[in-house]
Design a protein around this nucleic acid. Sequence first.
DNA 1: TTATTTATATGACTTAAGTCATACTTTGTT
DNA 2: AACAAAGTATGACTTAAGTCATATAAATAA
Lengths: 258, 258
Amino acid sequence: MNNIDHILAYPQVALPSYPRHLQTMSELLNMTECAREDCFLCRNISSEWLEIVRLKREVISYKKGETIFKEGDKVEGIYFILFGKVKIDMSWGNKSYIIRLAGDGQILGHRGFGIDDIYPVTGVALEPTSACFIPTDLFRKLLRTNPEFLYQLAFFYAEELKRTERRMKNLAHMPVKGRVAEGILLIREAFGVDGEGCLNYRMSRKDLAALAGTVYETTIRMLNELVTDGCISLLDRDIKILDVRKLNNCCMQEQQAS
Amino acid sequence: MNNIDHILAYPQVALPSYPRHLQTMSELLNMTECAREDCFLCRNISSEWLEIVRLKREVISYKKGETIFKEGDKVEGIYFILFGKVKIDMSWGNKSYIIRLAGDGQILGHRGFGIDDIYPVTGVALEPTSACFIPTDLFRKLLRTNPEFLYQLAFFYAEELKRTERRMKNLAHMPVKGRVAEGILLIREAFGVDGEGCLNYRMSRKDLAALAGTVYETTIRMLNELVTDGCISLLDRDIKILDVRKLNNCCMQEQQAS
DNA sequence: TTATTTATATGACTTAAGTCATACTTTGTT
DNA sequence: AACAAAGTATGACTTAAGTCATATAAATAA
């Protein structure tokens, strides 16, 4: 039922987050062109709209840890990540829960599209990030005149919904260990791994806890258990995935038992 | 942050699930016309497509407890509920989690629209239900030629995504009592309440547990606590909502405390 | 009707996971 | 370099919520 194929399908070695030909941070922060073939927006709109977008868009850069938009803020537009890594989370009291991780070329802030124009989530740059911002009214016009993009967007929403519901089910019934394992797989899926099998992003234990819906102490304990099980190894705080299938099995062990 | 307005906005007294002019069950099960103004599909497509849909659709009736589609089944099309009540759930081992409740006029099985054509969820009729079924290929053609419907569908997906994420966050950090309270509000939202304030659908404790992501024993205990708190009262197993705001506060009490 | 199954209810017990306290390590700042 | 601040790690303890056992009530079938 819970097909592992979609997990194994993701590349073992992901593309580097930073464009190779750019060397310094200032070059990076001045980058205003996205690789069209990778960008969710550019890939799916007409050539004339590509020009309009190029003229009207605003390219904004964010430092590590900087907030891109905040829960409760008024929605002014939508973002597409040129490069970088972003977490999207919701808070409940002083606790937070990470809804999604987004990397290069991905759409960001699409939760603002809906009945009310208030962000239900907060977006924070995990690394230096550059994003292309498109104001709401322009975006709505774009949707009305680019049926292919609208179709792809609906498709994307459908996939997001499915993935969210899958996670929600796990949150309801799966023990914490499996959720931490799932969290690691989510990081892998979003940001990939290097040649050694280490996750391309070193997430703090606190963030990993927010991704798994638990506290950081428990996360640390579960990471130790996953090491004992031979699923992962910890190299100076980097998480190295030893066995994806085994890790995935942690997400289903009790399911098989019953 | 967690605005109560969208909860209060739902009608205290919902429309009856069964069309008033039809008296017997056989009349109901032979009903092939949906009230166009209520139906998510009919409302948003062109008049010529309305004709095509009328010719090509299949109206299917389901008994109480009957499965409409099952997790793992191949997706053959999409459903629109003419009348009735449906639960959509996912299973994890022997436990299940209710993702959504759907009533008259609502779209059903839209999770099948995506990369793979396998249902990630199971749809079960909670009451005698009649649905209009549209095969996938026709539906895709419909999407391509009815931009207004596609736009509304994307919009619907966006709202579903937001609502799902809100629930997911609660599942991660909110105590069970709040989740049971939330479950009651979800039933109210989907099926409404009668003149007395009683939920229009008498859901089993087991289903309510699946909606709150817990076990039925705990659900019973939490219902008792909610009675003590004066949020609800139990009349011969029917749940009567006494105070929506109070009930909603149960979903946020610790949030305020911190 | 009576029988059988299914749903509801409650108490007693167990356990997974959270909280608190403390120590160590790394990172960043003046 | 030296300090502060943030992140990591572990043990001891607590508690929310699950499990198990049992009883009653309601629904369905024979």
